[in-house]
Each structure stands twice: as C-alpha cells, then as structure tokens.
Design a protein around this nucleic acid. Structure first.
Lengths: 230, 230
DNA sequence: CGACCATTTGATATGGATCAAGCGATGTGG
DNA sequence: CCACATCGCTTGATCCATATCAAATGGTCG
C-alpha cells in the first residue's frame, strides 16, 4: 500500500506522520515511477515561475534539485507561502482544474514535469497509480492541516515548529541549510521577517540553536524546541 | 468526471471553487452511491464524539442531517476547528492510517458510516470510485488551503469570509442558520468568541447584516463583506 | 419566576507589527 | 586588494489589533 508515499519517505512503510518526510528519491512504480519514465526534466532559475494561480492545472511536478515555494498573493501585497517543496517531493496535485497557489523556484531548481492527462489515463488502467494519486493527495492534505494548526500558534511555537520540520526534512539531522530567505520563512509562518529574526536570536541565547550564518542553523536542544511547539 | 463532487455540488459540472459547496444529496454512483448502498445510518447526540484523533481511520462518513466539527485540542486548552461538515458532505478522507483531527456532532446528527476497506476494495475494481476518492480528497485539500489563507487574515476579514462561506453552503442564500456556537466559530477562525461578537455587531452597525437572534444571521450587503475579505 | 449558560459589551494588557536605524555579507569597480 | 554600494538580516522603539479579564444582558429550561 501507499507506494508513492513510501518513495517520498524512503521507507517501505507508509507514514502519515505530521511532518515526517525524508525526501529520498528511489526508483519505484506507481506515480513516482511514471513521473521518472514519462516526465521531462526542466530547469528553473531562482524566482522563476513554475505555474501561476488561476492557470490551468495541466501538469504534476517532482523536485529533482533546488527548492520550490507554493504561495498566494493578496491584493494589498501580503503573501502566504503554503508549502516548500524539496528534492523528492511531488507537487501540483493540490489543484482542481485551476491552481489555487502559484509556484516559484526558491533557488535554481531542476523539476520533472509530467502531463496530468497522461497520469490520469494511466490511473484509469493501473490501480497502483490511482491509489498513489489518492495517497499523495491525502498526504498533502495532512501536511496542509498541520500547517493550518501551526498558523494558530504564537510566534515562538511557529518558529520552533519550522526548525523541527526543516530538520526532519533535511538529511543531516541537526544541521539545517535553508534555501529560502527570512521573508520566505516569515510568509510561510504568517509572521514578519523581523519576528523570525527575533525568535531565532532568542533561541540562540537560550542555547537551543546556533546560527553559523543566516542560511545555516544548527539544532542543539531539540527538547527545548519540542516543548515550545506544545 | 468528478461525479462525487458533482453530487456534493448538486450540479453536473465539477467545481473546485473556493468555498462553493451547496450540499444537495442526490442518488448517484461513485463513492456517494457506495456510501448510500453499503453504509449504515447512525445517530449522534449533540457533542457526541464520532471519532477521536489518534484513533484508527477505519471509516468514511457522510452527513445526512445536523452538523459536525472536525477539531484538534492542544495541551493548554486551545482548540482549532479545522472544518464544519454539513448535510451532504463526505468526511473522514483526510486521514492516513490515523485521524489527525477528532470529529464531534455540533448538534444532534444523522451520519452514514461506511467501512474504509470496503470502499478501498471497491475502488480497486471501479475506476469511478477510485477517481471520486481522489477528487473528494483534492477538494478537501483545496478547502483546507483556503482555510489556511483565512487564518492569515485579520479579524474583520475572517468573520466576513465565514459569513460568505456559510451563506454559500446554506440553501437560503442570504439567511444563515448557524448550528454552532460563537465559541465554535471562534475556534474555526482562530479568534476569541468576544472578537466574533464585536465583529458581528460592527457589521450590523454598518448595515451589512442583521442578527434576528444569535444563531441566525441575515446578509444585506454582500458587497461590503466581499470587499472585506480583500 | 429564577437559575443557568451563552452572548454582548466594556476596560485593560500584550504579542507581534510597523517604522527606523545599524550591521554584515556579497559583489563590483577602481 | 580594498573602498564602496547594495541588499538582506538584526536590533531597537513605538503602536495597534486582538486577547484577556470582568461585568451586564439576554435567552432557555426547569
């Protein structure tokens, strides 16, 4: 069951755990296999648009390298980043007929792109693909629900959650290399970049983390962080 | 395509529109049909638990009458209501192997309950069911994403959004009969019940709505509300 | 009618936004 | 290689939206 999620998790057991997604791409059947076989590799420069909201949702995507942000702008200039997609992640399933969010490369990125109709007709013939389609979407739904919970927390909790999420998704457990700017993080957490800065320095003073430089964060006391996320 | 969503929408065209879900249950194939055929009807009293978080997700559900809240408690007593499910709505798809949210009856409710495995094995044989499974989940994902956007807005915007959502989901267009308390609404919008009250009276003073009683709201000026949601 | 609980309204407190200035890294031209 | 410009990040001061605390009102059920 759930082979595509297994692919994303790099394990044979499915896991719908909160933010537990170690993104290790391996060869497999189901959607992941289909994308590898029939998808085409495309490069996007930093800040290049992958798709815009209101655009037809005609493709599925898989991050090969780099990072992607899914975001939505509101008229008055605010921006909400709904998700960051990292290597191994499949995205674009969230859409109905139109995208609700736009997607941009956070840094230069390689993306596998696959035609939606091709996958859909594959799903009509292949149960594994159909199940993966559902599984991946359900998984994305759980991620979104978790993020919704996060937006109900206070600033220290949000930042701590973010660090733990990023640490989980990174290979090196306690060393985080951020692809994104403070502003990206702020828009992901529904805070301002100033508040992100303040919370990080507060955590550094509490000896929970160190900041070798602003894109690199080392976790020292996960317990403190875990207590904060309550 | 998308027959289950069509069922929920009560129209033959699929709609992934933001919060546009008129819940009219009609006889149909796909998941909705399956639930009607093989599901069992159960009654839940006000505030009765339908399922708890951490519980195994062994069933899908469809609201026949009444209303359901999907919520999550945090240790310190805070509660986030992630969704309200109204008559015609199918829920419980959001889960992986475990529920992330709990579900309770907001008022006395009749619910159709169907075994998950039964639906899954049906989906393995019937493409329509498999597609519905995906479509409904994708639809729930979009609803959750919209709600995530809402949690990034300010109080007046959130309340206005809520009123427009409820008006859309109600039959009588401009007359809303709320099943839930102020506290339920507050926890849905990430605000306090006092703030909900204040925003409603503010809207009443602005002649955008009237409040015949506290569970009944009449919309007079949707334009004002729509401007507020920005 | 009276008790109870939900809702509204009022007064005050506070967390995070905003505005503003300083700092540090990165890159460019002299 | 260094001076300087630029841009993102950090830090500080103040403000404001919403939470919190508290009291008044209203609606429901015995």
């Amino acid at each position: 069951m759930l082979s595509a999620v297994a692919v994303q998790n790099g394990s044979s057991r499915p896991s719908f755990g909160r933010l537990a997604r170690k993104e290790i791409a391996v060869e497999a059947d189901g959607i992941a296999g289909a994308i590898e076989r029939i998808g085409t590799r495309k490069c996007f420069h930093q800040n290049a648009e992958i798709y815009g909201e209101k655009e037809g949702a005609d493709y599925f995507y898989k991050v090969v390298s780099g990072a992607v942000r899914a975001y939505k702008l509101v008229i008055d200039g605010r921006r909400l980043v709904g998700a960051f997609h990292l290597p191994g992640n499949i995205f674009g399933l969230e859409a109905g007929e139109q995208h609700l969010f736009s997607a941009e490369a956070v840094v230069d990125a390689e993306i596998l792109v696959v035609n939606r109709d091709a996958v859909m007709s594959l799903a009509a013939r292949d149960n594994d693909v159909a199940r993966d389609l559902w599984t991946l979407t359900a998984s994305e739904l759980q991620r979104t629900q978790s993020h919704m919970l996060l937006l109900n927390k206070n600033a220290p909790e949000r930042v701590a959650s973010f660090l733990l999420e990023m640490a989980d998704r990174n290979e090196a457990d306690d060393e985080i290399q951020l692809a994104m700017s403070r502003q990206d993080v702020a828009d992901y957490l529904g805070l301002t970049s100033e508040t992100i800065s303040r919370m990080l320095t507060r955590l550094e003073k509490a000896a929970a983390i160190t900041l070798p430089n602003c894109r690199r964060i080392v976790l020292h006391d996960r317990l403190v962080l875990k207590r904060m996320v309550s």
